[in-house]
Design a protein around this nucleic acid. Structure first.
Lengths: 201, 201
DNA sequence: TTTACTACTAAACAAATGTTTACTATAATG
DNA sequence: CATTATAGTAAACATTTGTTTAGTAGTAAA
């Protein structure tokens, strides 16, 4: 990607900071204020340069500045839930503690974040307190790490096929495996673990 | 937080989806198009309701819709680097592979993401391919997981004090500890590991 | 029933915002 | 030297966009 001049970098910087601070891009006149320009033409020129060099793209309309993905990062937002949701999540739901940004490719319909309790999956590097991204719609297969309801509580386990039945195994040998009969899997498996966030290392 | 009516929820949904898709909020008329309203007054009413209930806030100006933090998530963006950066990162830097969104509290001046190589920290649940958030300015202390330069390559290790010297220990017993003498620490320690992302579990 | 709230339409209006034209200046480049 | 790119100012312009006024209609609560 082409290099930016110092002034152009200031403009891009201001756009990024504005986006981060309040969630929508600045107007041309706001850029002028920030860079001490007295004419909108100046800022407009910089925007044109940024667009030509591929850092932003613009659409007709007010504040229609789109920062290229490589810089904006294209986040998705997933709800961190206290319990595994039964139905589709609604916004003002009391079950949602927080909405956290994650890389866009982790996003998807129905996905949510769940805080891991216990050390049963420590052998797979999944620790107490980690947040796992759960996809309730993904097909679960042999060897996948899944979220299962055991004794009314959500636990993370690894799925193993044992003939017709399936087995949920912890990766900590201190925990015994759990067998599920044929019909039980749909009831008890609430999703596949697809990614992980750890806050304090 | 107050409940939303179904129609208000549709409006909020459209705002969130627009923000995710193109990075800036819709105009009132765009909301009208999306919800099949023929008068801007209708959409405006919904916006007023959303603001009154605390889901968004609005500023004077075009598209000046700010979605409340709980929903917007307030992301920070960190660069995923191929090598540990020597100086401050610049935008068009060739060393930056990608900018990824992370929860806001993980952000901070100078922080970056580094991909973990090898299995030397597997005992702490840090696997090959994981992305760690590195803070080059944090004070490193006994017991911290740090990024150290060993043989010109960045490796993740845990820091232990051994009298005046310090020791870098892997959490995989297959790897021997590495001793650093007094002055070496500043040269070789490039930051503290503060968080972790794992893509495929 | 009255009141309040949600939901919507139509048309006019005012403010904010992007765009264009015209012109000056500096530095780097061939 | 002429050319090109960057950087800036000033003023007028066109459009987008938010806002207001004036209505209608359905539903639930007091």
């Amino acid at each position: 990607m082409e290099e930016l001049t110092p002034r152009q970098e200031e403009v891009l910087d201001h756009i990024l900071r504005t986006l981060e601070r309040r969630g929508y891009p600045p107007s041309v006149r706001e850029i002028c204020d920030a860079l001490d320009l007295s004419s909108t033409r100046g800022a407009l020129r910089h925007l044109e340069a940024l667009e030509r060099k591929g850092f932003i793209s613009r659409a007709p309309g007010a504040r229609a500045i789109q920062v290229r993905d490589a810089f904006r990062g294209a986040a998705s937002y997933l709800p961190l839930v206290g319990e595994v949701p039964a139905g589709p999540l609604r916004y003002a739901s009391g079950e949602v503690e927080e909405w956290l940004p994650v890389p866009a490719r982790w996003g998807g319909e129905g996905r949510f974040l769940l805080r891991v309790r216990g050390d049963s999956m420590i052998g797979d590097g999944i620790h107490e307190g980690d947040l796992v991204v759960v996809d309730p719609r993904a097909a679960v297969e042999e060897g996948d790490v899944v979220v299962a309801m055991v004794d009314e509580e959500a636990t993370v386990k690894r799925l193993r096929r044992r003939g017709k039945a399936v087995e949920l195994r912890a990766s900590n040998p201190a925990y015994p495996p759990l067998r599920l009969k044929g019909g039980e899997t749909e009831v008890r498996l609430s999703g596949k673990v697809v990614a992980l966030l750890r806050d304090r290392v």
